[in-house]
């Protein structure tokens, strides 16, 4: 693997090329219970990859497995260029950083003492400078000497992020980083993650906050014990939902069938459930929309709005998870 790293916090080093994570048929069972099964995906260096799923879907167990804390039951994986084996555990952990859901700080120690301990575990040189840079990256330099127990939950989460940045990891695993935070603190964490993304840090983000994933992630995987789907949020929307145009008119059109028939790109129509317009099934919204507008004007209809339907990542997620629920109750 070519190593050309660019530091998250220090600006030193080089960005590795090729996949940061390769997972192939990975399965983890605890006795009879399956945490996740036959999971395969790849994450590229510099990518922010969102791992979504309901509670108990196997997200945290996947992170722990890729972080070498748990041994996979079957399947293979490569993390930061190294095969996921017991023998590579130390070297993999040296190249990655994991921030668990709870930041896990020593509350009796100060922020700087916490970071200094972890800098020692990573055998880092110039610890003081690294700690300062990491704290500056999360805007906590002025709280370095404060005991962690005096910090709010949001600030503790930021200390956890600073700790994860200390070793300048190739891959940063963030497990529900905004869980339990108020909207303001969550926004701060989002800004920090966004800043890391701009600096090219590879981030593996597990969350069940869909807006968070949509805003931050280049690609997402939706997990529910198995990996249900994977792709860019817009790709997933297209895969799951037919393309439609929403048409709103002041009054119902006299003969909508005649107006919409034969228009380029329009495959069908039905009245909108709201009762103030129509939903048109289209092959290409950009091709269909001008023709629909012209046809409505020609038919003397008062056109109030014409827009392609927008499905959120939440719609995709709910569709897939509901399919799973239905399949299990069948």
């Amino acid at each position: 693997m070519t190593v050309k790293r660019d530091s998250a916090t220090t600006g030193a080093g080089a960005v590795p090329t090729g996949p940061a994570i390769v997972v192939d048929g990975l399965t983890k069972r605890f006795g009879e219970r399956t945490a996740f099964t036959d999971v395969s995906f790849e994450v590229a260096y510099g990518e922010v990859f969102g791992f979504l799923g309901p509670n108990g879907a196997g997200k945290t167990t996947t992170v722990r497995t890729l972080g070498t804390l748990l041994a996979p039951t079957s399947g293979t994986a490569t993390v930061a260029g190294l095969p996921l084996t017991g023998a590579n555990g130390v070297e993999i952990r040296r190249r990655i950083a994991v921030m668990p859901e709870a930041p896990g700080l020593y509350l009796r120690l100060s922020v700087a003492e916490n970071l200094d301990f972890f800098a020692g575990l990573y055998e880092l040189d110039d610890r003081r400078a690294r700690i300062e840079r990491a704290l500056r990256a999360v805007n906590l330099l002025d709280r370095a000497d404060d005991p962690c127990r005096s910090l709010s939950k949001g600030l503790r989460q930021r200390v956890g992020l600073a700790r994860a940045l200390l070793s300048d990891p190739e891959i940063l695993f963030l497990d529900e980083p905004t869980s339990g935070l108020d909207p303001l603190a969550a926004r701060d964490v989002h800004e920090l993650i966004d800043g890391m993304r701009r600096r090219g840090v590879t981030i593996f983000l597990t969350t069940h906050r869909l807006a968070e994933a949509e805003a931050l992630c280049d690609r997402v995987g939706i997990m529910n014990t198995t990996l249900r789907t994977i792709g860019r949020p817009d790709e997933l929307r297209e895969q799951l939902f037919a393309k439609t145009l929403q048409v709103t008119t002041r009054e119902p059109v006299a003969d909508p069938g005649a107006v919409f028939a034969g228009l380029p790109g329009v495959e069908g129509w039905h009245p909108a459930s709201s009762g103030d317009g129509y939903v048109l099934a289209v092959t290409d919204p950009d091709l269909a929309a001008p023709a629909v507008a012209r046809a409505l004007v020609a038919a003397d209809a008062d056109l109030l709005a014409l827009s392609p339907s927008r499905h959120s990542l939440e719609d995709v997620y709910l569709q897939l998870i509901e399919e799973d629920v239905e399949a299990r109750t069948r």
């Binding site: 952990r93 040296r94 994991v98 668990p100 896990g104 972890f118 055998e123």
Partner: peptide
Amino acid sequence: EQGTLEPVLTTPIR
């Protein structure tokens, strides 16, 4: 109990 075990075990410590 204080939730620090996992962060420590994810470091390169043997």
